[in-house]
């Protein structure tokens, strides 16, 4: 269209779109223009800085990992979807300590069902999931597992609850928070304040209904609660969907920090850039099967795309299933 001599105004928060398409960029923040730049003479980071008003903190760097022991072992997992059709077919993989395994797949290729099965929200028809020593199909192991669910409104938070109440969701039975049948308000207060402070949840009020928070802060409630759990395995589904740059950055740093602390992390994301940035290995799912596992350093968006859409099949699986 530009070649036809048309003027195009592109409004987006996706910086790579801006960088590849536009000639000039106007950055707005809180209803007013904060700057106008030539695309060729600026960088995504600079635009990001202008958008959020201060420097987006340098992301936490991944430390090289030594060979940790295996935390989760998924073997020959098969799961049905809501319509009782096979959604996950014979999937096997392992995740080690201090490793982020990314899952890349086009929506509807079984990745959501896979996550639900691993986190105990969906029964599986075959195979098993072993988290360290406990079995994840067993509800008791919710403690061994932190789960940032794909759809936070539907699963991750109770919209009608306050921030405080949401910060103990799923952890309310831990002896730390409940004695006999009563909730220990003082301990819960302390816990909530710690997370609100540590994860920068705004406004800093634990008694507000969580639905009055912005989407990014709601997500921080979920991320904060789950990451403060000290579980061996963290399952994060679309952890940054719908967030602004600053929040995305925050969540990314938090995930990497947990990785560096030796957690095993299963990361599901529809954003390949995010996967390539965070994951150590990336598994591609296609039609419910694993269609390749790659070391992040040895692959790129283009290659992942070919495997996600089924144009190329099976790579690196033998090694992973050994």
């Amino acid at each position: 269209m530009k070649k036809q001599g048309k003027t195009v105004i592109l409004i987006t928060h996706k910086l790579n779109e801006v960088m590849t398409i536009s000639d000039r960029v106007t950055v707005m923040r809180r209803g007013s223009v904060v700057g106008e730049l030539e695309t060729a003479s600026t960088s995504a980071r600079e635009i990001a800085r202008m958008m959020v008003g201060d420097d987006v903190g340098q992301p936490v760097q991944k430390v090289p990992r030594g060979g940790g022991e295996t935390v989760v072992n998924v073997e020959h997992l098969s799961v049905l979807n809501d319509r009782l059709l096979p959604a996950v077919r014979d999937v096997s993989f392992t995740i080690d300590q201090g490793e982020i395994l990314g899952i890349a797949a086009v929506e509807g290729n079984g990745q959501s069902e896979l996550v639900q099965a691993i986190t105990g929200l969906r029964r599986f028809i075959n195979g098993r999931v072993v988290v360290r020593s406990g079995n994840a199909s067993d509800r008791l192991s919710t403690r061994a597992l932190a789960h940032i669910p794909e759809d936070r409104i539907k699963f991750g938070i109770v919209l009608g609850f306050t921030v405080l109440e949401n910060l103990i969701l799923g952890r309310h039975r831990e002896p730390e928070f409940s004695r006999l049948m009563l909730l220990d308000r003082a301990k819960i207060d302390e816990h909530a304040e710690r997370i609100i402070e540590g994860f920068d949840i705004r406004p800093r009020r634990k008694d507000l209904p969580v639905k009055s928070l912005s989407g990014g802060n709601q997500q921080k409630v979920v991320v904060g609660r789950e990451l403060s759990k000290d579980a061996a395995l963290i399952v994060a589904s679309q952890p940054t969907r719908g967030l602004d740059i600053r929040a995305i950055d925050f969540v990314h740093s938090a995930i990497i920090r947990e990785r560096n602390r030796g957690k095993a992390i299963l990361l599901l994301s529809s954003d390949l850039t995010e996967l390539l940035e965070l994951a150590d290995r990336i598994a591609v799912m296609y039609e419910g099967r694993l269609n390749g596992i790659f070391h992040t350093s040895e692959t790129n968006e283009r290659e992942l795309g070919l495997y996600m859409t089924g144009f190329q099949k099976h790579r690196g699986l033998e090694a992973a299933q050994s």
């Binding site: 509800r139 919209l159 009608g160 799923g170």
Partner: peptide, 17 residues
């Protein structure tokens, strides 16, 4: 707490075990 969580969101309650 569990009763109210279930009342407000059955999905989130199941998620919370």
């Amino acid at each position: 707490y569990e009763l109210r969580a279930t009342g407000l969101s059955r999905n989130a309650a199941a998620y919370a075990g």
